[in-house]
Design a protein around this nucleic acid. Structure first.
Lengths: 341, 341
DNA sequence: GAACGGCAGGAACACGTTTTCTGAAACGTA
DNA sequence: TACGTTTCAGAAAACGTGTTCCTGCCGTTC
């Protein structure tokens, strides 16, 4: 009863199946499948005929049928340890970017730091027969591995199990690079202001700065000041610092937020940045780094690349070439007005 | 040859199928399906026996098989008009939140403002037989509708076609509320500083403020100042403003970034906020609103709720109850130190 | 005692694709 | 001409679930 025309307008038109293509090309469905996938032994003429029929009908293979048949769903899960935020978002986009190119889709699973939600999502992903899972999280403290029947890659937040595949960022290297930059500018009295010591990121960056400063013969003028990841703490820390070390001439900060607070407070105290005091940030968060006066010299983390790399490693693992171990991605120093005029 | 035990350890264990459950319960696969789904006519005892068998084996129905059979994939696509950013992220999370509860998964498709990518993603979603699509975007300018064979709901950025289902935020209402708050504080010389007039958000908020001020008998002291969505513009706009209207006593801003620049610059000029000049922001972006000194009174947009609502409307439409038209969600004013001491 | 109705559960098929197996035709060689 | 080999394409099974149809049994009623 319904019009047989293949190109109905907007309304819910039932999709063309491979049998439709096969019928138009005058071959069996299996043959059409072989023709379109490039497998099997077919005459070039037949192959081309099927291909033309598929084009003409606008055939798009049904992913569900394909998944059922092939056992691969061409879908991966993206599971967050906490909630997607400023840090994990670029990772997520990097994953989506790298996978989308390979016609692999991403199932978004936001955990919100809730183990129950994590279990729920893992079951959901398992039932959907995803080909693999990317696990990410805001913190850099290693997390307990997830248990899944498919390959798993950890992005930014590594797995506690070293034989798992993890992609992390060279935080220590970045912190050392920022410090080296300050020393190269001739600064000799350097302080480090950073976030809570309960965060691995704060601890490892601080340790790296302390070690590098000491081995350069320019030990920090005070122990690292641990507080919060906020502008407010940056401002307060400056007050503490200048009281203790009035002639400080450089501050290495654990984040751009802290650095911005530091810069603001220094200016209010009448110190010129960078002439009197040079300041470095961390993260290269444009909203902070560029709005600061002067804009911040900071350490870029390339989170997008973390996501892309994790996605690539996952695809490798799905294809049977797992690569255990942790990949450490380099950071890069972005020099702006807070260190050089 | 392989161990028949159902609970193999970590290694790639083949998932239990419904036939396994049926065998253990001593019924046919079809019966097991009926027992677990609650359909068909079965004795309560049989139903319970199957249920126990499923629990014992840890059976999770294969989503792929189910999708193929039922025609529903229990998956929806989330398509961004531009790229996921600060504004759209809460929408995305709201969508994921509302759908995850109903065992519906979210396929993430980031468009990056590229029509080619959008086409690619739409094809991918179609091939995966998603049940519906949520479209979102950073800007509030209506977008050209997407063409898909499944229900579509637009979140935050509405569709240009009015009969489509869109969920937006009451920007005008929010802008009016902020202005009313300033007037209620006794301010009489109000200015409005906002972003580029090329953005619908800037235009509609500015119009609303102008209209509300005029009808309250307190017209704005100058025409709205259009610039950029940045702190830098906020600071520059203050310089322009005080030169023109030295006795301005309130500034309504189009965004928290602008408001923060305004507050900073006013303080540098020796004006006290809020005593000399009261300032309101827009968006309630914690990073800006709370780090500002004083913290910003601002308009909260509840983007999370936009996502949740869009998801709910989409599920309704998938279930055959489409609700055409635009839903406008209320904003709420968050009062902080930039207007009241 | 037979006919009928209602209920429990089994068998078969549908969904759309991929893949394997099999068969037929074409071709070459002895 | 007969036989073997190669090339191509079709038929059928497989993937796992949901649903429909159908059969058999039991109880009831005339």
């Amino acid at each position: 009863m319904e019009p047989a025309g293949p190109a109905a307008s907007a309304g819910r038109t039932r999709p063309v199946r491979i049998v439709d293509v096969a019928a138009l090309a005058g071959v069996a469905p299996g043959t059409a499948s072989k023709a379109l996938s490039g497998s099997g032994q077919l005459r070039a003429e037949t192959r081309e005929r099927v291909r033309r029929a598929a084009d003409q009908l606008g055939f798009v293979p049904d992913g569900v049928g394909r998944a059922l048949s092939s056992g691969r769903s061409f879908t991966v899960g993206l599971l967050t340890t906490d909630s997607i935020g400023r840090f994990t978002l670029p990772v997520v986009l990097g994953v989506e970017d790298a996978l989308g190119a390979g016609d692999v889709a991403v199932l978004l699973c936001d955990t919100r730091d809730d183990p129950l939600r994590e279990r729920h999502h893992l079951r959901s992903l398992a039932s959907r027969r995803v080909d693999g899972i990317v696990v990410t999280g805001r913190r850099t403290d290693p997390r307990t591995p997830v248990s899944a029947d498919v390959p798993v890659v950890y992005a930014f937040q590594p797995s506690r199990r070293e034989e798992d595949t993890s992609v992390v960022v060279d935080e220590r290297g970045g912190a050392v690079a920022a410090l080296a930059h300050l020393l190269a500018l001739g600064r000799t009295r350097v302080a480090h202001i950073t976030g809570s010591s309960r965060h691995a990121a704060a601890r490892s960056r601080a340790e790296a700065v302390v070690d590098a400063a000491a081995s350069a013969g320019r030990p920090l003028v005070v122990d690292p000041l641990h507080g919060a990841w906020s502008e407010e703490w940056g401002r307060r820390a400056v007050d503490l610092l200048v009281r203790q070390v009035p002639d400080v001439d450089a501050v290495s900060c654990g984040s751009d937020q802290i650095a911005r607070g530091v810069v603001d407070r220094l200016r209010e105290l009448g110190r010129t940045v960078p002439d009197d005091v040079a300041v470095t940030g961390f993260d290269d968060w444009d909203v902070m780094a560029l709005a600061s006066r002067p804009p911040l010299t900071t350490v870029g983390l390339q989170m997008h690349e973390v996501g892309r790399t994790a996605a690539r490693l996952l695809l490798e693992a799905v294809d049977g070439r797992p690569q255990p171990g942790t990949v450490v991605l380099p950071t890069h120093l972005v020099v702006r007005g807070s260190t050089v005029a």
